[in-house]
């Protein structure tokens, strides 16, 4: 290769740009400008890099601009499921969303996930979500003596529920569901995903206990096949398909 003209950026340098974050805020104790519990929008303009994610921008605000901003995060790498939020009106993980993929020329809106009570800024009370998960009994249920060694399973048996083992309990699916927004009693997609993981596991014997629970008034029949959950899942789980498989098991009586 011949020598090229001087590049506008130095080799290895990541281009930077200005981006505005429009964040929905709420302080349960109130601030000088906002009474306790009021929801309001606040804008922050930052200089960020092409490799930065929404979470990096939130860190920058919290660490350098406004320490009172409240949000959850733990792993920062899409594993723990702490930082699901509504970014540009779609549920996503802040740590898996690059700013440059969101059109940084326009303000990026960030809200807490919908349908759960907001505690402060982007932090919601996850308890109703976890309560639904507990109700479908997310643990191995067996009868008979415990075997001496592992409970074996063929690759085909494993493949039936492989997709739903990937769930990280981020609540992006449940809080994207229009039925959950209007009726918080609905178990929600995640609880059905959690149940699916055991119902279709050949080693588990509690499938009919769980199916009976999901046959409830607030169970799978509330699902209207909106597909919001499948679109929201940061793990790429086919949530709507899993829900349909549970409906089919209930309708045919065969797991």
């Amino acid at each position: 290769m011949t020598a090229t003209a001087e590049a506008p950026t130095k080799a290895g340098e990541v281009p930077s740009f200005d981006v505005t974050l429009r964040i929905q805020r709420m302080d349960p104790d109130g601030t000088p400008d906002h009474p306790a519990g009021e929801e309001y929008w606040e804008e922050f303009t930052l200089t960020m890099h092409g490799t930065d994610r929404v979470l990096d921008a939130l860190h920058k605000i919290k660490w350098d601009v406004d320490g009172s901003l409240a949000f959850r995060r733990s792993c920062a790498h899409g594993v723990c499921g702490s930082d699901a939020m509504r970014i540009n009106a779609k549920n996503r993980l802040a740590c898996k969303t690059l700013l440059k993929d969101l059109n940084p020329k326009r303000p990026i809106t960030i809200e807490p996930i919908k349908g759960l009570p907001v505690e402060k800024d982007l932090i919601v009370d996850m308890e109703p979500f976890f309560a639904s998960y507990r109700e479908i009994m997310p643990f191995l249920m067996t009868s008979g003596p415990t075997p001496e060694r592992e409970r074996l399973q063929s690759p085909e048996e494993r493949a039936r529920f492989d997709d739903t083992t990937k769930c990280i309990m981020c609540a992006a699916c449940t809080t994207s569901c229009p039925v959950f927004w209007t009726d918080g009693q609905y178990f929600g997609p995640q609880a059905i995903v959690g149940a699916h993981r055991f119902i279709f596991d050949s080693r588990d014997e509690g499938e009919w206990d769980r199916l009976e629970i999901l046959n409830d008034k607030a169970g799978v029949w509330k699902c209207r096949t909106a597909f919001n959950c499948t679109e929201a899942c940061p793990r790429g789980i086919e949530v709507t398909k899993a829900i349909s498989e549970v409906k089919k098991a209930l309708n045919t009586g065969a797991v």
Binding site: P128, A131, S132, R134, E135, Q185, E212, I213, N215, D216, K217, A218, G219, W221, K222, K247, L250, N251
Partner: peptide, 20 residues
């Protein structure tokens, strides 16, 4: 133990019949 938020289970599979 944390109490479940729902109680009282399905009535004769009413919602299933409705769906079908």
């Amino acid at each position: 133990p944390l109490r479940p938020i729902r109680s009282g289970r399905s009535r004769n599979h009413a919602e299933q019949w409705s769906w079908l």
